[in-house]
């Protein structure tokens, strides 16, 4: 459903993505691991068209979405992304945060949205927090609202960029539980993470990024338990 071919991206002289080839099948969960600065965030932002790529192709559902002439808006509606720093809109309640995009884009009324969105809040254990403002929520709650906000647009694929690394350790589990639930429902996901244990448990495939390249990829049993590359081994020994 998503295929990146020879994707290149530089910031000035800094080559951040260097010939990325990556294919993600429907329902698959792919984890991106790698050192800080290896290009994980940039890769996800490029897929969401928040950053233009310099070169290469991104196929999404049979369409080349890296085409610079394309209007990115309808594509972004089908690709959800959740950021490390939540990025909730601080002047809106949790409910308003979630409703904004469906209301403006799908032109649905508040009343008609309320039922389906309440269900989402319910499922993620936040039914009593819908009227709260972001600064009245814990980090874990904020991050779950951010996930609900992305899910409310009913995306076909979800991108997660280190969504637990700004959280206190005791709040990480509640967010990871959400991902487990999504995975079991067959959501297609790409996730940049430092939670190697979680990546091993849940992901179908792990990609080790190094200097903007995918140095090694495969199922967790290969990449994590039996890495072929010296750099992967060095990275894993540092994070474990």
């Amino acid at each position: 459903m998503l295929r990146l071919e020879a994707v290149n991206k530089s910031f000035g002289a800094n080559k951040v993505l260097d010939g990325i080839d990556l294919e993600v099948a429907k329902g698959e969960m792919v984890c991106l691991i790698g050192a800080s600065g290896s290009g994980k965030s940039t890769l996800l932002r490029c897929v969401n068209l928040l950053e233009p790529i310099d070169d290469g192709t991104i196929w999404f559902d049979g369409q080349d979405i890296a085409d610079p002439d394309l209007d990115p808006q309808p594509i972004r509606q089908r690709i959800g992304i959740v950021f490390q720093s939540f990025n909730l809109f601080p002047h809106m309640t949790a409910m308003e945060n979630v409703m904004l995009a469906p209301r403006r884009i799908k032109r649905l009324s508040r009343a008609s949205l309320h039922a389906s969105i309440s269900t989402l809040f319910d499922r993620f254990g936040l039914s009593d927090r819908m009227g709260h403002y972001p600064d009245q929520l814990s980090g874990g709650q904020q991050q779950r609202v951010a996930i609900i906000r992305a899910l409310a647009m009913q995306p076909e694929i979800m991108l997660f960029d280190e969504i637990t690394s700004a959280l206190d350790p005791e709040l990480v589990a509640e967010v990871l539980d959400v991902l487990r639930a999504l995975h079991s429902e067959g959501m297609t996901m790409i996730m940049a993470t430092h939670e190697i244990g979680f990546a091993r448990e849940l992901s179908d495939r792990i990609c080790f990024l190094d200097g903007g390249r995918i140095l090694e990829q495969g199922p967790p049993s290969k990449v994590i338990d039996d890495p072929q590359e010296a750099r992967t081994r060095a990275f894993l020994s540092r994070v474990f």
């Binding site: 928040l50 990115p72 808006q73 959800g80 990025n87 909730l88 809109f89 904004l100 884009i105 647009m153």
Partner: peptide, 16 residues
């Protein structure tokens, strides 16, 4: 700018 990114990533236009 992360606020802008969050809004755009949901598919909202520049005006919205």
């Amino acid at each position: 700018r992360s606020q802008r990114a969050a809004a755009l990533s949901l598919g909202l236009g520049h005006g919205d």
